[in-house]
Write a protein that binds this DNA or RNA. Structure first.
Lengths: 214, 214, 214, 214
DNA sequence: AATGAATGAGAATTCATTCAT
DNA sequence: GATGAATGAATTCTCATTCAT
């Protein structure tokens, strides 16, 4: 893993008090991400989050209402900014759809699969049914946007004649699926059958682009 | 979902006592499958398993040493027989590789994605890191065998000239990935964006076969 | 320890059925003695007693009403016959009181301290307050009789001029105390500071006889 | 019984918080001493300890890791300080060995046999085999020290010509044994045959001193 | 009589959350 | 704001005892 995740902070300047508060909140979310990544939601103790952030147990409750809410915040703060970044990078309309698709998948691999964020992915799968509210948020703010991104590129590719016309239902999921599975594999089975993310990426992109190709 | 999962029972005839015990064990595993499917491992209460199976609290411990062991048994009993069936169905060497690949994916969709077993799949992904022992078992007895199955078909397809030569690392994972994601999606996001498994399957098979095609 | 404790069986001949029953009862008591000796009353499981006796759990309840009653039977059957034996051996009035006291203490050391019975002693101390009924029985049937035995010898010794007149309150307890402590020590502290029962016995007898001597 | 046992507190002044914590720890140990005294280790419920100390169930676990550790702490805190006191009182070298031995036995009777501490003594004997760690601690920190104390006095007595030379193995145990037995008797058999500690003490000291006398 | 499967009361322990300091 | 002591509901697991076979 090549990236330490840092929660991005809001832009506007604040009073020192506010800044410190913001900083502590950020530290707590980062600590929580590490703890949830390590042991999952149920087994994570608020105590451990507090320890990891260097504050006392009670303090966590000054910033978050409950363990559930803390979890939701972790997901939001960790994943949403990525989408913004992904969307921003889309604005290179002169590139071929093929290149843009490659680029986005690469982004996905490096930003999510090769960092603690892949644990978030796993946590969503694990806890989603127990946190419908969170699942809904994640769908609305992460998946839908990612889907729109991919879909737009593919449609553009079809329009340009790069890609063939394809059935649309589940297309985005199928295009990205290899990456999802890679992230899970690294977390669960890597110790039994190691997966080389770079080589895997090549296989993925090769298969998918060939599958889409006109 | 079109299939109620029934745990297969061993063939040899036994004494009545033994049979009843076997039956109760089976009932407990089926009950546990339902409970784990509903709420996941951590939130599952042994009491609920007992209730669901219509026995008392203590009885569960006559059959399984602990919640963990019960979970492992559920996974084993639910998934392993499928592989046997999958392997058995392979013996039609006159069919084209394309058809056999389709057939196996279809099997995967109907037997796993469209039944309670998809929850097991999800649980393996969710809890695997907390159960290295189980993850190892699952890898050895389910994934490796599935992998060999798919790989053999693809290689045969290459030999026959149906498929092109491809990078191998992660190939099986990428071929199956769409199905994994479909199962997860149905469990976590279906209520926000429903997924039609049949249509999805078409997209999946279309993309993959085209991607593999020579 | 030089003696395997065998529960004595009643003398009168019985039908085969009766004899078998008696034998199984005996086997259960012996098994229970071993189990209680190993782990104490509370930690002893009826299952373990059954296993140790080679019968099934339910069978124990055919012979004893409850764990408590089984415990009481163990105590009775293990200790009472000893007293009978001790009393019987008293009938040698020509021996000096000194010799008879020595002889009885020797008996105590070999029959109780150097066998599983020392565990009974420990169990009485441990569980007595929780089993007033048992403590009472033990007092009436073991201690009182032992006390009478010792007291008679001492009084005889005084009459013969071997021993001096002594305060009587707690005399028997003080005379025997060294043996009680030896039994406990071997069970609890022997691994940290081993106690040689033979040498200990010499010290005991030397101190007591000198203490009693006219 | 003439003494209410109070756990001694450390000397250094602390913050109010610390003091309260210390006080609560002390209260818990005292409560536990009462509960263990009443029913023994196995039958003691952590709930009862909590109730007895006026705190909630969970609180006990803030101070002690487990029931076992609580038990060990009770033993330590209850017995060790006594040894310090006993050792301190030794420094009167002008007194005769006879007087010093008497004095120490008296101390033993009043501080241990005539207080809740006799229950600890009983519990050590009863539970020692189940708590090897505790038995070792008790041997090293209580018995060894007591033994050295008694042994030193006796040797001094021999040197002064007050006592005769005696076999040493188990001498201390035999000298003290009467007291151990008295403590046990009061707890287990007193209701059936009451024991008057003062009279008993006289018998004990009379027998032992005469036994040792040159 | 013997078995051993089933029961369910009971206890230790954990941990999210609260709140006095 | 921050702390960390206290709470008590919740859950796993145990085992004496019962009872159908």
């Amino acid at each position: 893993m090549n990236e330490v995740i840092e929660v991005e902070q809001t832009a506007e300047p604040k009073s020192k008090r506010e800044q410190q508060k913001e900083a502590k909140r950020t530290a707590l979310i980062e600590a929580a991400l590490r703890v949830f990544s390590r042991v999952g939601f149920a087994a994570a103790k608020m105590d451990d989050v507090a320890d990891e952030a260097g504050v006392s147990k009670g303090t966590v409750y000054l910033y978050f209402e409950s363990k559930e809410q803390l979890f939701e915040e972790v997901v939001k703060v960790t994943m949403v900014p990525l989408l913004d970044e992904g969307v921003a990078s889309l604005v290179e309309p002169d590139k071929s759809a093929t290149d843009r698709l490659k680029q986005h998948l690469k982004f996905f691999y490096s930003k999510i699969l090769d960092s603690d964020r892949r644990n978030i992915m796993r946590l969503i799968m694990a806890e989603g049914p127990n946190f419908p509210h969170l699942a809904e948020f994640y769908h609305a703010n992460v998946l839908s946007r990612g889907q729109a991104l991919i879909q737009a590129i593919i449609e553009d590719g079809v329009a340009r004649g790069e890609f063939r016309a394809m059935p649309k239902h589940g297309l985005m999921q199928n295009v990205v699926a290899g990456a999802i599975v890679a992230g899970t594999w690294k977390l669960v089975f890597d110790q039994f059958q190691p997966l080389d993310l770079d080589a895997y990426f090549e296989t993925h992109i090769d298969l998918i682009l060939n599958g889409l190709k006109a």
